[in-house]
Design a protein around this nucleic acid. Structure first.
Length: 803
RNA sequence: GGGAGUUUAGCUCAGUUGGCUAGAGCAUCUGCCUUACAAGCAGAGGGUCAUAGGUUCGAGUCCUUUAACUCCCACCA
């Protein structure tokens, strides 16, 4: 029996412990008969507190895991934590008020480990608290030795295959984080600046000058040449001549290139190393000199002369003032434009030239497209984001980071000849700083080595989560059994990083796609167009507070609303619906159970309305499956929910008379209702268990477990009520509901109680036979003395019999 | 500049291959203590389906136009 009231505060914790203890969600390695469904869960980045957006996105995938389990799959649902690299370093620096570069490397990484462990525990507890059904025995960490090993194996494999290279090539650089970054880590920010028109005097003339517009005059000290378009008649006569760089007074040539846009600025552009992407292309194409204007931390170099040692933004104003004073500034136009900033810190990104490691991505664009096509995208339109990204790739993937806390490169350099020496696979994981190669340099025989002190981009490890999960190169049997994985779920912000890089790696390593399906969820917005962010202080949606206030089930319910891939705006009012549902589910179960306690389903001839309910249930079930197969977890729940309310408000109301009073309506009528109540309620509880696992478990344990036997509702499979697929009956039963509704309406309009007796009701319907066969039900539920049923389309309600 | 998504009731959103009078919840209003639930139930009002055209016997749904909002990408001289 069920307690009178449901108390989520005690119940949720109780069942969470129970599930862990009984291993209800364990992947069954030994089972060879059930089909496997594997989920490549995104390991959340340990970069601060988890907010409601994470809960939203993870829950959507979690519903799929539960659904598949209840459809008979052996579900492989691991959970990982991405706890290394730049994001984690930034968290540690902020939390402890330290800077990585101001202390010994080892000390810093030890502190990182401490902080990470604290946060990982918090994360895990939160996911358990929300009722996440991951198999925690499959938990992994990207900073753990196992993950490091896989990540380094990935590097070695790419190295052997010539897909990773070490080169002195222009790379994006963050002067605040003091490291190289990748194109995918850029964000755009709109800023106000000025377009400065400067005089570049033509060599040998005091009067003739070339007018050049620039937003970055601080780069004047790093100018290599000036470009004009070859078709630009305005400047044709100057091509080949030299011009004098303002303030610095050295001469650079005027050259032609198609990339110089006649429409932009004055049509003449200065090329510096490096002001922007185009400069890097010119640098390569014309083999220009590399002139460094800005150092790693964003200060001007010696080359800048009197401005050396100053931040480049301060210098800009000063230079403009100096240019003005020297009469070299023709004018200034205000300009609003987009600049690239580092997504982690918002700093404007520079480009510099250092030796870095790159993974080749540009040469296989076609292949990335094809692999994207082989994966089914849900919703389909999200694939265009992936395609856009692939098409617009500008640079190979730079994977070296000048940071401390992460997976090291398994690489040394020979001190004598510079040869690259990589570790042996069997020695992994290695830290080159604390160990040395086992053999002398194969090229020169030298025995002195310089370790690579950079670490790998955190995405270089995150992009091998399928390989980590499936034991690539460690357990071939498991790998072949699980790859490609069934599903990759993530939000749309990391398509260009996590999804893209994972596809790249999987293709390079084994030539296959990493997953069959990809499910992209939306974002929780604070308001239209405004992302939730702690720094903005708009995150009034702390998941722990929400769970404590509304329960995990209600919070989960909320995450299921909406359709896949769409952003939704956070609103606490919406939680009320979930509370209502949870309450109703408990009460309805309690009510129905009193009539089926001790009942075991047996074949009976069903009454018409009971057949109708079964057919209705089965039709709902079909829709439920249809939506779930498209990962539309919210729309699936919508189907279930509206069926459930219909069940409570119409069906149960109609049959409860039969259940209460078999002496009036007959034993058979009672048994028919019992059969349907038992099956429909159990069926719905199982489906609701996907969304609200705690309350449904509580109900199951106190009711159906006694007849079903299985230790947990989450071990059951969802399904139809047998043998009731008759679609013809649907409109007939609906007609009865609508007739009852019309009678209710007349009572409501007369402002009388619903139990008020009615002298006579005339029903005119096109389903005379069916309605006649439901006569007893209709009379009972509406308290009708005389009921006349005939052909037509109307309901006439007679006198009310008042006390 | 290229691409994607959205636009349906005051609010949040469903609406499948075109098919009865366009639906639900919230909010508002009117009632009802009905042998589960008043944390409940019944009912009512409320919509030119963003816009303009087209295809069709028939369009919220398909095609074209325009507009607004959001996002992704590019441009960053």
């Amino acid at each position: 029996m069920l307690e009178n009231k449901y108390d989520f505060k005690t119940s949720e914790k109780k069942w969470q412990d129970f599930w862990q203890e009984k291993g209800v969600y364990r992947f069954d390695r030994e089972n060879q008969t059930k089909p496997i469904y594997s989920i490549d869960t995104p390991p959340p980045t340990v970069s601060g507190k988890i907010h409601i957006g994470h809960i939203f996105s993870y829950s959507q995938a979690e519903f799929v895991a539960r659904y598949k389990r209840m459809r008979g799959y052996n579900v492989f649902y691991p959970f990982g934590f991405d706890d290394n690299g730049l994001p984690t370093e930034l968290l540690v620096e902020k939390e402890r008020g330290i800077k990585a570069y101001s202390m010994p490397r080892e000390e810093f990484t030890n502190i990182c480990m401490e902080v990470v462990n604290k946060y990982v525990d918090e994360f895990k507890n939160l996911f358990i608290k929300i009722g996440n059904s991951a198999d925690w025995s499959l938990r992994y960490h990207t900073v753990s030795p196992d993950a490091q090993k896989t990540s380094q194996m990935s590097f070695l494999d790419l190295y052997k295959k010539g897909k990773v290279y070490y080169a002195n090539a222009p790379a994006l650089w963050c002067t605040k984080c003091r490291t190289a970054i990748a194109q995918s880590e850029l964000e755009t920010k709109e800023i106000e600046t000025t377009f400065n028109h400067l005089k570049f005097f033509v060599e040998g003339s005091d009067s003739e000058f070339l007018e050049i517009a620039t937003t970055r005059p601080e780069f004047l000290c790093a100018c290599d040449c000036v470009f004009v378009n070859p078709n630009d008649k305005r400047y044709a006569h100057l091509v080949g001549k030299n011009v004098k760089v303002p303030l610095y007074n050295y001469y650079v040539p005027i050259m032609t290139d198609d990339k110089a846009d006649m429409e932009k600025g004055t049509g003449a552009v200065m090329c510096c190393t490096f002001g922007d992407q185009t400069d890097t292309q010119w640098f390569k194409k014309y083999n220009l000199e590399y002139k460094v204007a800005i150092d790693d931390a964003g200060y001007m170099t010696e080359r800048a002369g009197k401005y050396a040692g100053l931040k480049c933004k301060e210098v800009r104003e000063q230079i403009i003032a100096d240019l003005k004073e020297a009469g070299l500034l023709i004018g200034q136009d205000p300009l609003t434009h987009q600049v690239s900033v580092h997504e982690r810190c918002g700093t404007e990104v520079e480009i510099n030239l250092k030796k870095q490691w790159f993974i080749k991505t540009l040469e296989n664009k076609e292949e990335w497209r094809k692999k994207g096509d082989q994966i089914t995208w849900y919703p389909a339109f999200m694939q265009s984001r992936y395609n856009d990204w692939v098409e617009n790739l500008m640079m190979d993937w730079c994977i070296s980071r000048q940071k401390y806390f992460g997976v090291p490169f398994p690489v040394w350099y020979c001190k004598d000849c510079g040869e690259i020496i990589v570790a042996q696979k069997e020695d992994l994981p290695v830290n080159p700083i604390s160990t040395s190669p086992k053999h002398a340099c194969p090229k020169c025989g030298g025995n002195n080595f310089i370790p690579e002190s950079d670490i790998l981009d955190t995405w270089a490890t995150s992009s091998v989560t399928p390989q980590i999960n499936c034991k690539w190169n460690i357990d071939d049997k498991t790998y072949n059994r699980l790859m490609p994985m069934s599903l990759r779920p993530n939000a749309h912000d990391i398509i260009r990083t996590w999804d893209f890089y994972t596809i790249v790696k999987s293709f390079y390593h084994s030539g296959i796609k990493p997953w069959d399906n990809i499910m992209i969820s939306g974002f929780i917005m604070a308001s239209a167009g405004e992302k939730i962010s702690k720094s903005k202080g708009n995150a009034k949606s702390d998941p722990i507070a929400l769970i404590d206030t509304y329960s995990a089930d209600v919070t989960r319910y909320w995450t299921a609303t909406g359709s896949l891939g769409r952003d939704i705006i956070f609103g606490e009012e919406e939680f009320k619906n979930g509370q209502r549902l949870l309450n109703k589910l408990y009460n309805a179960s309690k009510f129905v159970w009193q009539f089926v306690d001790g009942y075991t389903p047996k074949d009976v001839e069903l009454l018409p309305m009971d057949k109708w309910l079964c057919a209705k249930y089965n039709a709902m079930f079909d829709n439920f499956i249809k939506y779930f197969e498209k990962y539309e977890v919210g729309l699936a729940m919508g189907e279930l929910e509206s069926f459930f309310w219909n069940f409570c408000d119409n069906y149960v109301e109609i049959v409860k008379n039969r259940l209460y009073k078999p002496e009036i309506y007959g034993e058979k009528a009672k048994e028919s209702a019992q059969y349907v109540c038992y099956n429909a309620l159990l069926g719905m509880l199982k489906m609701f268990a996907i969304y609200m696992p705690h309350v449904t478990e509580e109900i199951y344990q106190n009711t159906f477990k006694s007849t079903v036997g299985e230790i947990s509702i989450h071990k059951l499979e969802i399904g139809k009520i047998k043998d009731y697929e008759d679609k013809e009956i649907l409109p007939m039963g609906d007609e009865v509901v609508s007739v009852v509704s019309k009678i209710r309406q007349s009572k409501s309009e007369a402002k009388v109680s619903l139990k008020t007796e009615i002298e006579t009701v005339q029903i005119k319907t096109k389903y005379v036979d069916f309605v006649k066969s439901c006569e007893a039900d209709i009379r009972a539920v509406m308290s009708i003395k005389n009921l006349e049923i005939s052909d037509g389309d109307d309901v006439i309600v007679g006198k009310f019999i008042q006390e």
